[in-house]
Write a protein that binds this DNA or RNA. Sequence first.
DNA 1: TTGACATACCTCACAACGCGATGCATCGTG
DNA 2: CACGATGCATCGCGTTGTGAGGTATGTCAA
Lengths: 118, 118
Amino acid sequence: MLDKKLVAATSEALILSILQEGDSYGYEIIQRVSALSHGELKWNESMLYPVLHRLENNGMVSSYWQASPTGRQRKYYSVDEDGLAELEEKKRQWRIADGALGSLWGPNDEVHVRQAKE
Amino acid sequence: MLDKKLVAATSEALILSILQEGDSYGYEIIQRVSALSHGELKWNESMLYPVLHRLENNGMVSSYWQASPTGRQRKYYSVDEDGLAELEEKKRQWRIADGALGSLWGPNDEVHVRQAKE
DNA sequence: TTGACATACCTCACAACGCGATGCATCGTG
DNA sequence: CACGATGCATCGCGTTGTGAGGTATGTCAA
């Protein structure tokens, strides 16, 4: 399992990225994340739903109910414009953090070298 | 400024990595982090010291007082064996998270190819 | 029919943690 | 002497993951 804090730091970015590929709903997102991390990230509903609601309250995503082929009701989410902007900002921040760690870890062979200044 | 959650997720790994390069003390660590992130991470003492104390209580690092050339007392920290093991674990987790995000963001070859921001 | 299990949504209570505010002390410099 | 830089530390607030709990519907085999 991943550390709690790392989960917190990646949850919104993961959700927004997944929704960017197409609308989805809670249960599916959980499984998608599990697959993406090769089973290392096991999200549970009690962390996902609050995040989803928070994103919605902040205008990052919108939701709508729609029935699945089996008849079950699902609450689908889609990214809004603000959500996409937020995602870009999160990507930027992730790269900064990754760069800082990378410069301490790797023998920075061609990878993290770029002095991305401008 | 980086998001609070991302700060939380990287603080211990950054500290352990910095200490791995040589013993250091609070004030210096804060500046080192700022430099590593090109000024994007502005840690303050009220987040660093609790983390340092936590790491010490958990047996990850040890501390000792030593006077600086100017005479001021400094509390130096050094990594313990458990701290190094913990660092390795944190590296592993970071790579998993980075891998998951990477597979959603970029073509995962070339590592984060900085696709020219148009 | 019954029971187990996957699917699908949600909330509450608790603990952990960043961080602004605050405090104390020393050193160098003008 | 005043002031900023250095150097350590704690308190209280708000945010957040998460175990535990709740509700409801679909499939499938016994």
